[in-house]
């Protein structure tokens, strides 16, 4: 408790401020307004960039796995995804299992 709790509280407040600002401005806007459409596209670009980076240039536990294994697991996920009628969940499970299997077998 103490300082750690204060940090969590402050960080939560700052984090929520952005959400609330979106509600305050976006709540009154027309969903077809160009700025709103633009914000949606900005979010998609941002998220795609973030998620690709998390796989290609990871930090933490995933960084210990070689780039070849990460790319391979992503390829497996994509192949399964395309094979089973674009099921994102099954594709992801296959990719995760491929990554774990390749890492364990390599040791």
């Amino acid at each position: 408790m103490g300082e750690g709790s204060l940090a969590i509280l402050m960080a939560s407040a700052v984090n929520y401020a952005w959400r609330a600002l979106g509600v305050a401005i976006g709540g009154a806007a027309d969903p077809r307004h160009p700025v709103i459409l633009w914000a949606g596209l900005v979010t998609y670009a941002m998220l795609a960039g973030l998620f690709v980076r998390m796989i290609v240039m990871p930090a933490g536990a995933l960084a210990a796995v070689g780039l070849d294994v990460r790319i391979g697991a992503t390829a497996v996920a994509l192949a399964v995804f395309l094979a089973v009628r674009r099921n994102a969940l099954l594709g992801t499970l296959a990719g995760m299992i491929a990554l774990i299997a390749a890492t364990v077998l390599a040791r």
Partner: peptide, 28 residues
């Protein structure tokens, strides 16, 4: 605490366009 606020504000900035894009759809 100032460093903390600036860093969290920067990383959570992406919640703003996310919220901004969705809320008009929900609140129409």
């Amino acid at each position: 605490i100032v460093t903390l606020i600036v860093a969290v504000a920067l990383v959570s900035l992406r919640l703003f366009p996310m919220s901004l894009a969705l809320m008009p759809l929900l609140r129409e």
